[in-house]
């Protein structure tokens, strides 16, 4: 049970970063930390004591496997997370070239 609680604390740390920081790069980093805590939660739900990785050996088929469904969901979500993080970083670099700062308060003032 303590592993779930630590995972939830990691999520809260990411949420704290998103809300209180005013720097765009810090916000992107906090978002990826929240993403990572969700991946860890899914992998924890699928774990079975004494299970082996979900690869069937045809010679010796009767074993306990860990649950493959959460792993399949996380597998695609990791790659999508990379693409969305890259898109966030491209938006940030365009904003930096236009306004010369990462701070969202200054961007708001400069827009006028």
């Amino acid at each position: 049970m303590i592993a779930y609680i630590m995972c939830f604390i990691l999520f809260l740390v990411g949420l704290y970063g998103v809300i209180t920081r005013r720097n765009l790069v810090k916000i992107a980093v906090s978002l990826s930390i929240m993403e990572i805590s969700i991946f860890l939660l899914f992998a924890l739900i699928g774990y079975v004591d004494g299970g082996v990785a979900p690869i069937v050996d045809p010679a010796d088929p009767v074993k306990t496997y860990v649950d493959p469904l959460p792993q399949a969901m996380v597998l695609t979500a990791i790659v999508i997370g990379l693409a969305t993080t890259a898109m966030l970083m491209t938006i940030i670099i365009r904003l930096y070239r236009k306004y010369g700062t990462f701070d969202i308060r200054e961007i708001k003032n400069l827009r006028g």
Binding site: P54, V66, P68, L69, A72
Partner: peptide, 30 residues
Amino acid sequence: LGKSTLRMAGPYIEGAAYKTGSANLVTGVV
């Protein structure tokens, strides 16, 4: 932790290698 009893876990594991033909169960699910 370690006593997972998801309702969908059974049908995805039992005989899944022969339903999909794939030894890697994750690829079969994906």
